[in-house]
């Protein structure tokens, strides 16, 4: 591949991810509105929010780590996008593989922990300690699921995993070959998105949005962008692992929005668990289902 082509892809992939991510945020809010029988926000609402937040005239920074934390939170996902193959663009997915991707997806939480730590707000500290505990809870089933899929495909390379599924046709998709792993993956997805019933670290009514409590202006804007990336990354990764990736952008958008609809509509139907219940639940059910799935694959 030409170097210039690669560079173009590296710029284009996060950009497309950002736009699709904004659409996903809109989808979440519209879906919530429909479930609550409301009209919901207008089409460009997420964009307006981001522009407004970055356009604030006074910005309150709590120090250098606060700034770096937000950059890490966004940068982790931006780096992750370049490892996620989408139709027409592979980026550096062939060199990174799914293990690097798993690592990169942890960076945002760590960056947030750094940034929030410097804000010295008790609500923020509680929030971030809960976020890290939740990460510990959902990462174990996540690793099991990723291991199972990679073992089944005989490769940790996302491009090969997708290719193998596409060659086998619809019957060869991960979700039909490894249904148990797919279920465990779905529960993990709910946890990693931090949506109800696993919304322990945002909890607006209890700890005032936890990690976001001291974030205003461009900091909150950065977190909004991060959320857009997060939706995109998780949905596209799930599509790649279990739904056979996608040959065209229409298929990709359809599949990833479909994947996202399940956790989001559950989110609007449930209240949330306490943190210890979350750890217990995530370490019990998805891990058990996942291990059973891995046993079948082996």
């Amino acid at each position: 591949m030409m170097l210039s082509e690669l560079l173009l892809e590296l710029v284009l992939m996060p950009l497309v991810a950002f736009l699709v991510g904004l659409m996903m945020v809109l989808w979440m809010r519209r879906l919530g509105a429909r479930i609550q029988r409301r009209v919901g926000p207008p089409l460009l609402q997420p964009l307006y929010d981001v522009i407004k937040l970055f356009g604030k005239e006074t910005q309150i920074s709590h120090g250098i780590l606060h700034d770096i934390g937000i950059v890490m939170a966004m940068g982790g996902y931006i780096a992750a996008e370049t490892l996620l193959p989408v139709p027409g663009m592979d980026g550096i997915a062939a060199y990174g593989g799914i293990i690097t991707l798993t690592y990169l997806m942890m960076i945002p939480s760590l960056g947030l922990a750094l940034g929030v730590g410097q804000c010295a707000n008790p609500n923020g500290s509680i929030g971030i300690s809960r976020a890290l505990t939740a990460m510990l809870a959902y990462d174990i089933p996540f690793v099991i699921v990723v291991f199972g899929v990679a073992y089944h495909a005989g490769s940790a390379n996302l491009i090969e995993i997708i290719d193998a599924q596409q060659q086998a046709g619809v019957r060869g998709w991960g979700i039909f070959e490894m249904p148990l792993l797919a279920i465990a993956g779905l529960i993990t997805l709910q946890g990693s998105l931090g949506k109800q019933p696993f919304e322990v670290y945002v909890a607006p009514a209890e700890i005032a949005t936890g990690p976001m409590v001291e974030m205003g202006g461009k900091y909150l804007g950065g977190l909004f962008v991060m959320q857009a990336f997060q939706f995109y990354t998780t949905a596209v990764l799930y599509t790649a692992l279990f739904l056979g990736g996608a040959e065209s952008w229409t298929a990709l958008l359809l599949k990833s929005f479909l994947v996202l609809t399940i956790p989001l509509s559950l989110a609007y139907l449930f209240p949330r668990y306490r943190i210890e219940d979350l750890v217990r639940l995530l370490w019990k059910w998805p891990v058990m289902i996942g291990l059973l799935g891995v046993a079948f694959v082996l």
């Binding site: 460009l44 609402q45 964009l47 307006y48 929010d49 522009i51 407004k52 356009g55």
Partner: peptide, 9 residues
């Protein structure tokens, strides 16, 4: 543009 966005968000 920012005023436009501010008024809508």
């Amino acid at each position: 543009l920012t005023n436009f966005a501010r008024a809508r968000s």
